[in-house]
Design a protein around this nucleic acid. Structure first.
Lengths: 191, 191, 191, 191
DNA sequence: CATGAATGAGTCTTCATTCAT
DNA sequence: TATGAATGAAGACTCATTCAT
């Protein structure tokens, strides 16, 4: 629906608390009252935006993971998905970033959107579990891997999703990092 | 000042838009009117909180970098600083996370706190430039390194700073990543 | 009409101000738009409900009074009518109660439904005038009788019409009062 | 407080749902925002008005009942209290009338003001119980007496409290009724 | 230095009403 | 006949800010 897509963009940019019904209504070309014909509240509108975007992300990640069975391969695949999604519609990633902080800032949102939402958690568990099976992740490092993967994806969303070129560089850099090619050992320091 | 420290905590937790003057006043044990004796506006109060925390971070990073001259060593040092700062006062990292999004959400803040703020940018440039000197960063990968470093530190702040244990795991994981020890090549892949 | 009867029930329960067109429409199984095919406004709908119920009451009171020619007998007859009407359709009395206050609260209603409405006033005048004829009411007490009768019937509607059993007790009590049997002289008082 | 007294008058006249904060604010000579400095919500304001008026009524009824020990005497005393209260401040009775219907129409009010409120119920029970002791009320007629007393007082409030003269006539008529003097037996009807 | 009282603009939400279909 | 979509005015409530004391 038109309303959901303009709302997504506004929420992505400004967050739940700052975007007013008036903002959404004006951007959608209707009156604020009309919003209540479609959603029972601002909160519900936000929730619908959330799941609508989440669905697109989940679908893409799912299909990117099928046919790849190493953790290493999957990480690369997901990084590429992240980039192409960002290229197609930058508000998706931006929205995910703001949604994480909005769910903390507005308790109503946390209640309406249980934590952790969507496939996110499921994908992560699958990643780790399968990584253990392939031997890529040792049992002792499981938590570390989880933490690093989370750090990287959150960092990507929060710090790079507003500039497509930089986003590409971050992706390429991270792939190089996986390839041990990002950094070269230092020449004898101080030599 | 007492007001700044309670304000820091509140802003870190809830963000600029949600924390009210009344919240700050009550937490500081004064009236809202009194706030205006110390700050000319809520905005100014926020700015002062910002620089007060930023100063502590800058100082720590600066001192962590002196005496280390490889990019690799510096990254490890800064990661450790990030962790110990987080252990000492969790609201510092939290505030930095919320400040990044609040500066986007509230244009007045962006105007009052130019982007990128503080030493952040200077440190980053120094890191890269010296990395080139030591040969760790090739000229073609400069942008990638910058993007990856930024991704990692933002990811750390945004995704791990609310749980000290997980924060430690992320730090250890990232160090292992630098050591090429986080992930082991897959068995199957070699079959 | 179906609409009028569901509207009557809703208005009786909640009053003019609180019942929305949507409430009525939903209860009648149509859309709010359709309401405007039958009535030109919410106000007009209310007025039609009013007269529709009033007609039923008037008719019953009229027929209860014919053939009885003392004030005393008529009061008893009307009390019984009040009870049987309440037993048949409790929303009639309830509506009359709410209508009295709604006509005060919403000036538009007062304008649309002149005060005092319906046969009420006519019946009262007949009662008093004939009571004077039969000698039951002295000239000096005319106003008092009018006021007491009004007090009793309003009290019945407003305080008892939501519970049929209590309503019966009130009716029986009032008849006992007319018979000088409700209260017995106090023992102590005679001591 | 000034606000409470003007609010009482407005609520008495128009009821909870129709009186707006703006109405109260304008009548009190302040802004709507200022209301929230004194009350946390419109509901709370209403509740305070309620208890403030109820306190005055309770006190008067209590003192009217002391020293009188027959039911008959007490009823007369309370009727006189009703009249003098109405003479002093007509909004008290009017408010009690509207409050009864508002508590039904607005469930929040019922929750905030438990039913039955104030001394009302206590006074009624005392009246009946002592009436049984003095022999004025037989055991079988207890419920009837309760219902009649309730009917009369509700009727007085709801139908007469807006006109002091008529109120007086109703009181006098009711006293005459207790004295068996309101109505005279009919001369041979039809004779 | 500090407060309590107050303001007014702005927010979400409701609802009678309209109208093209 | 009837509907679904939409409007716009109004209502409760919040909050940064001001100011006399």
């Amino acid at each position: 629906m038109r309303i959901i897509s303009v709302a997504a963009e506004l929420f992505a940019l400004k967050g739940y608390g700052i975007v007013t019904n008036k903002d959404v209504a004006r951007a959608a070309g209707i009156s604020t009252g009309a919003l209540y014909y479609y959603f029972s509240s601002k909160l519900e509108m936000y929730v619908e935006v959330f799941w609508s975007l989440q669905a697109r992300v989940d679908e893409r990640i799912d299909s990117a993971m099928t046919g790849v069975d190493t953790l290493d391969g999957r990480l690369r695949a997901i990084l590429e998905v992240a980039h192409s999604l960002n290229a197609e519609d930058p508000s998706i990633a931006r929205f995910q970033g703001t949604a994480r902080v909005d769910r903390i800032r507005h308790p109503e949102l946390l209640e309406a959107i249980p934590n952790p939402p969507g496939e996110g958690a499921r994908v992560m568990e699958r990643l780790i579990a399968d990584g253990v099976k392939t031997g890529e992740v040792t049992l002792e490092r499981r938590q570390q891997v989880r933490a690093v993967v989370r750090t990287i994806f959150v960092g990507l969303i929060d710090s790079q999703s507003d500039d497509l070129e930089r986003h590409r560089q971050a992706i390429d850099g991270l792939i190089a990092l996986l390839d041990h090619k990002l950094l070269v050992p230092a020449r004898k320091a101080r030599a």
